[in-house]
Simulated assay, not measured.
Amino acid sequence: MLQPRYLSVVLSFFISGVTTAFISFLPSSDLTILVISFISCFIFGSILIYFALDYLVFQEVNQLYDRIKQIKKKDFSITPRKQLVEKTNPIELLKKELNTYVTSKEDEVFELKKAAKYRQEFLADVSHELKTPIFAAQGFVHTLLDNPDEDVEIRSKFLEKAAKSLDGLDNLVQDLLTVSQIETGAIKIEKKKMNLRALVEEIFEQVEAKARKRGVTLTLEAPAIPVYVKADMLRISQVILNLVVNGIKYGKENGSVTVLLTEKKKVVQISVIDNGPGIASEHLHRIFERFYRIDKSRAKNSGGTGLGLSIVKHIVQAHNGKITVHSAENKGTTFEFKLEKA
């Protein structure tokens, strides 16, 4: 491929020759005029053509070539999208489109890296969560196998502990399946008219024993009449039950958990409020992540799988809603989401 300087010389030579040939037909032309015309056209033509080719074509094309090489090397560190401006030059437009394409690929690579990191963390968390109950059950069972003549009472105690570990493992697997099925759409949300007030009262009855054990007062603040919403009763029951149980388990002893139903124009807002120790600000943006625990030792003792709030988030999202949390240390916690009025 010719360089700009050589190409400009060749083009200027032909242009000068053609120009001189036309001037030679003029009656007043002589050899001196023809030579001066040729040399002038050649010099100025070379300079103009060189700068035109170099600055308007070759440099732009070379930049495009450099960007293509960056794509091949998977190096997406080029001009940010915000620095791109509209151009009328077709080469500049081509550069803009290429920059936009590469920037979009950069975003895709970032998301893929983020997803890969998330998968690694998820696999590590799952492995850890599965390992604990499995090892516990194995330990109890192998102890019994190694001591077949052990006292009946001790054997029963070991079997009960092994069964408890396996029950915890079953709960974990069921929660994982639920999250996966909601994410992939395998679980269909069937919205029907339901009485939200009656559902909360039923949930309070289910958790009454747990609340009494910790001295927690359960309160429903809602209109005296039925509060109807359009939702999947089974799934919304999971959401409210999970939030109320969390308030009982992680709130303070002799505290309170309140479910507040607020009717608005087109929706009903559900708020689950406790007066517990609250959640520090650095944890708030992560509490809906799978297996994320604020106090891991305390959560382990409570017997949770670490998937409850993740399931809550996915169920609310499947109802085209969003769950939010408001909390501060020593000031309690409030979870809020909205459902469509029926």
Rank of each mutant, 00 (worst) to 15 (best):
L84F: 00
S28D: 10
S37P: 01
T79M: 10
V35R: 11
R81L: 12
Q83N: 10
G45M: 05
F22S: 08
G17C: 07
S16G: 13
Q83H: 09
I36D: 03
G45R: 05
P80I: 04
T32I: 13
I15A: 15
E60F: 06
L26N: 07
V18A: 15
P27I: 04
A21G: 14
A52D: 02
L84Y: 01
S46L: 00
Q63G: 11
I49K: 03
I23P: 01
S24E: 07
Q63C: 01
V18N: 05
I33Q: 12
K73S: 14
I36H: 04
I71G: 11
F42A: 08
K82Q: 05
K73Y: 11
I23W: 13
F13P: 02
S24P: 01
L56D: 01
L31E: 11
F22I: 15
P80M: 05
F44M: 10
I71E: 11
S24Y: 14
S16T: 03
L34N: 14
Q63M: 06
A21H: 13
R67L: 14
V57G: 03
F25L: 12
F38W: 15
K69R: 14
F22A: 13
K73A: 15
I23D: 04
S24F: 11
Q70V: 00
Q59V: 03
S40Q: 04
Y50P: 00
T79N: 06
R81Y: 06
L31N: 09
D66G: 08
S24T: 06
S16F: 06
I36M: 09
I78H: 03
F42I: 05
V61C: 07
Y65T: 07
S29E: 10
L56V: 01
R67W: 14
E60K: 15
L26W: 10
K74Q: 15
I78V: 09
L56R: 04
I23F: 15
Y55W: 11
F44E: 03
F14P: 03
F25D: 08
D75K: 14
D30G: 14
L64D: 01
Q70I: 00
S24I: 02
F58M: 08
Q63F: 06
K72S: 11
L31A: 13
A21C: 12
I49V: 11
F25N: 09
L26A: 13
I78G: 09
I68N: 04
